[in-house]
């Protein structure tokens, strides 16, 4: 089995579990059973319970849904923003390219998590604001790539011919640039999904992402870490493995496609 196919299968499994898991496993993630607090996995609670006696598996599935519902649209938004910025710099006049790339250098000098933490402390945190935040902060890498690929196409004969034939910038972007850079775009869109899942999980882990009572993989890990002295491995390993699986799926798929 090729790397890309393994990655896609794993990714599909994670997404299916996250989006449709709550339909299959019916337990209420927010129901509290104080009598059953902090139990190790058993027949009644396949992944144990947390310190409030909430069902671990139900929490994991709810957390997956919350994570994916925010990070997938954010990846789409980042993709569109990065593509537009990159095309503008790549096809626009030389001075515009210089200005836009200079700005991009400065934006890239700030680690995205640091910028995310800063803005997360300013805006009210909910699904919509987090989609916008992650979307508008994760695009610079893609923008630079699109711009470089576009510039590389610019000097080629078919571009010159198209321009001489009177093709407008939108036509050139659609027909001559996008079709050529499409493979690179697909690979980087995959990496982008991994990036936004990581960023959201990291933010939620730091308490600056999805807010309680909503749970996410990152916040589940954080609350398990608060009581780590009691060694609740069944609360730490599952959410960690889910994030790991999502990131591994993204990087396997991207790497596999890159090799083609």
């Amino acid at each position: 089995m090729s790397e890309a196919r393994a990655g896609m299968l794993l990714g599909a499994a994670v997404v299916l579990a996250g989006l449709f898991g709550p339909w299959v496993y019916h337990a209420d993630p927010y129901a509290i059973h104080p009598a059953y607090a902090l139990q190790a996995p058993s027949r009644h609670f396949p992944l144990g319970t947390d310190e409030l006696g909430r069902d671990g598996l139900a929490l994991l599935l709810a957390g997956g849904k919350a994570t994916l519902v925010v990070s997938l649209p954010a990846a789409v938004l980042a993709f569109v923003t990065g593509l537009a910025y990159g095309l503008l710099a790549g096809l626009g006049p030389g001075w515009l390219d210089k200005v836009l790339m200079r700005l991009l250098d400065v934006v890239l000098a700030l680690p995205s998590l640091v910028v995310l933490i800063f803005f997360a402390s300013i805006v009210p945190l909910n699904n919509a604001s987090l989609v916008l935040l992650l979307g508008f902060i994760s695009w610079p890498g893609l923008a630079r790539l699109v711009r470089n690929e576009t510039r590389a196409q610019r000097g080629r004969d078919f571009m010159l011919a198209a321009r001489q034939a009177g093709a407008g910038p939108f036509y050139i972007a659609r027909v001559h640039v996008l079709r050529v850079v499409a493979p690179v775009l697909v690979v980087n869109a995959t990496f982008l999904v991994g990036d936004t899942i990581f960023a959201l999980s990291a933010l939620s882990f730091l308490g600056l992402g999805l807010q309680p009572p909503q749970v996410s993989w990152g916040s589940l890990l954080q609350s398990a870490l608060d009581i780590i002295a009691l060694a609740p491995w069944w609360l730490i390993v599952p959410p960690g493995l889910m994030i790991f699986a999502a990131l591994l799926a993204a990087s396997l798929t991207g790497r596999g496609l890159l090799r083609r």
């Binding site: 999980s201 990152g218 890990l221 398990a224 780590i228 060694a231 730490i236 994030i243 790991f244």
Partner: peptide, 29 residues
């Protein structure tokens, strides 16, 4: 490389603390 590239640092840290600080008491958490 593939495995640890995909492991988020907070998960690595949690596992390390669980094993070496809470479980074995070798190192402070």
């Amino acid at each position: 490389q593939l495995v640890f590239y995909a492991t988020p640092p907070f998960f690595t840290a949690a596992i390390l603390v669980l094993c070496f600080a809470v479980g074995l008491h070798w190192l402070p958490a």
